[in-house]
């Protein structure tokens, strides 16, 4: 990844591909949550909504999986995958320091404890969280969702793991966890220099160096 300083002293945190990847994932997950909600909590009288929700869910899942595979390839090929792998140091003591900041320091107006750079743009707790989400929750959802979909073509697969009555609740529980993650994730974007600075960075790709800026809530 090339990192270059912007004309106004800003630096590039995310390339175009990374931003596209992020927003495709975001839209897919949002679509999956919404269409999934329509499937598990349908209401009568909404003619045709259910079948459209099924189609939307499948389309979003396809986008998520394809985008995820491409992203994995990109990170593997470029070697950037390393930055997603937390070390024990990321949990202790850095993770504790990071947590302490969100629990106390942020209210006191302390400086962010970590210097975020394009090379080290994932902070310790972020690393741990993304590691869990990308390596456990996302594959879990893809596998359980894939098994649900496989009913149409190879019902014996899902029967071997207990059938739909086992897999469907697991998929549903995973969806609740994903929704919780999305809520916290969106909130955490507001903890940058300004409430919208992180969001702006993910849109434009450019952001200011955190350590040199004044604190805002």
């Amino acid at each position: 990844m090339s990192v270059s300083a912007s004309g106004k002293g800003k630096i590039q945190y995310y390339t175009l591909y990374e931003r596209l990847w992020h927003w495709v994932q975001a839209l897919s997950i949002l679509g999956l949550i919404l269409s999934g909600a329509l499937l598990v909590f349908p209401w009568q009288g909404a003619g045709g909504v259910f079948s459209r929700a099924v189609a939307s869910h499948h389309l979003c899942a396809l986008a998520l999986v394809v985008n995820g595979v491409l992203g994995l390839f990109y990170n593997l090929a470029s070697g950037l995958i390393r930055r997603y792998v937390p070390t024990t140091e990321d949990i202790f003591p850095l993770g504790l320091r990071h947590a302490r900041y969100y629990l106390f320091g942020i209210f006191k107006g302390e400086d962010h404890p970590f210097d975020r750079t394009p090379e080290k743009r994932l902070l310790p707790l972020q690393k741990v969280t993304y590691f869990v989400v990308l390596n456990l929750l996302l594959p879990f959802m893809v596998i359980t969702g894939g098994l649900r979909y496989s009913v149409e073509y190879e019902p014996s697969w899902i029967e071997q793991v207990g059938g739909l009555s086992v897999i469907a609740p697991l998929h549903r529980f995973g969806a609740w966890l994903f929704l919780a993650f999305v809520i916290v994730h969106i909130y955490m974007t507001t903890t940058g220099k300004t409430p919208l600075s992180n969001l702006r960075t993910m849109i434009t790709g450019y952001g200011e160096h955190e350590a040199v800026l004044e604190k805002n809530p």
């Binding site: 499937l39 598990v40 909590f41 349908p42 259910f50 059938g163 739909l164 009555s165 469907a168 609740p169 549903r172 529980f173 969806a175 609740w176 966890l177 929704l179």
Partner: peptide, 15 residues
């Protein structure tokens, strides 16, 4: 398993 017709009160409660 009928999607949309299943009641999963406990699971949804936890969720």
């Amino acid at each position: 398993y009928v999607t949309g017709a299943q009641r999963m009160g406990a699971l949804d409660g936890v969720g």
